[in-house]
Nucleic acid binder design. Structure first.
Lengths: 168, 168
DNA sequence: TCCAAACCCTTGGATGTCCTAGTATATTGC
DNA sequence: GCAATATACTAGGACATCCAAGGGTTTGGA
């Protein structure tokens, strides 16, 4: 977006919070704001890596999820639950993936309400190639140190459990 | 979106990565995926808290930024740089805030290219009230433990510096 | 001086997310 | 068995983000 700022704007915000008498919540405010910004940076990296494949992160996630399902197929509602996004977002992603020939919709054998998303062979191939690039260009160069990765997994895992994402 | 899942889908993904021979990047993948999901949860909480004020997080951030500027005014490009979002996103936010009477555009006194965003008194009042609610309902109940907040600030701060957000 | 390059903001288009509402199919209870 | 309730997916709309392109303003070098 531009050259680096001379100072960390989030640290400045934290100081502003403290100066205004909100010292008790200044640190969580800073942590949450930093998390939002970090997500933005990482998402941009991921989208850049996926662009050559004509994929976005949302579509890639669905493709990857399907590729790990033994049968290569999942009901839409199951995909929505596992990806933890709104059902309409899955509909949107499937529309586009289907248009690109990477997945197809098929009726559920026993439940007429349910639609199965099936990976095509093109979809499976593309998922594999995209994963290789993501692994090498994004996850392999995350910029997080080894111990920090473990800390993040622990802290964010606790948070997500408390937020009701999973009960395990 | 629904009931908690019986198992953590991100931990499952991490196991899938390891099982497919990508053990070297499985942990960063899990950390990054968890970060994306956490951002989603936090954003939803923030948007819920701001809804009664007719604000979104993007608009709130701009309002808050202005309220900390001594003069209560900032050039659009400065706001874009400090919030670290694309200039068009600022245009969009200003359009809506202006429509709500919370800010107004005024010409820069010496540079004809630049537009200043000015907080109105309604804007200043609303920013104050919205901040109070965010502090008590979101930041004050973040769900992160004290030490973890410090860890997050440190880890994400290092990441953002390495990513070129700031040089400090 | 003067014109090209740099900078600032806005418009238009593509994507993704969510919410609300509507249609179709299953399940449950009387 | 049939009506009421629950579940699954989709259509339409509101927002936010980014990119590409365009028009106006400044700056700086020839």
């Amino acid at each position: 977006m531009g050259a680096p700022l001379p100072r960390d704007p989030i640290a400045d915000a934290q100081r502003n919070w403290e100066r205004h008498g909100w010292a008790d919540v200044a640190a969580p405010m800073a942590a949450i704001t930093a998390l939002m910004r970090t997500q933005q940076i990482l998402l941009a990296r991921i989208e850049t890596a996926l662009k050559p494949f004509g994929l976005t992160f949302a579509r890639y996630e669905l493709l990857a999820l399907l590729s790990f399902a033994r049968s290569g197929a999942l009901p839409m509602n199951k995909a929505s639950a596992l990806l933890q996004v709104h059902p309409t977002s899955v509909t949107n992603a499937v529309d586009r993936l289907q248009g690109a020939g990477l997945v197809l919709r098929s009726p559920h054998p026993t439940d007429g309400r349910t639609t199965l998303i099936e990976l095509t062979s093109e979809g499976r191939t593309l998922a594999k190639r995209a994963t290789a690039v993501l692994n090498s260009e994004v996850f392999g160069r995350s910029g997080f140190e080894g111990q920090d990765v473990d800390q993040l997994i622990r802290i964010l895992g606790n948070f997500r459990r408390n937020a009701g994402d999973f009960s395990g």
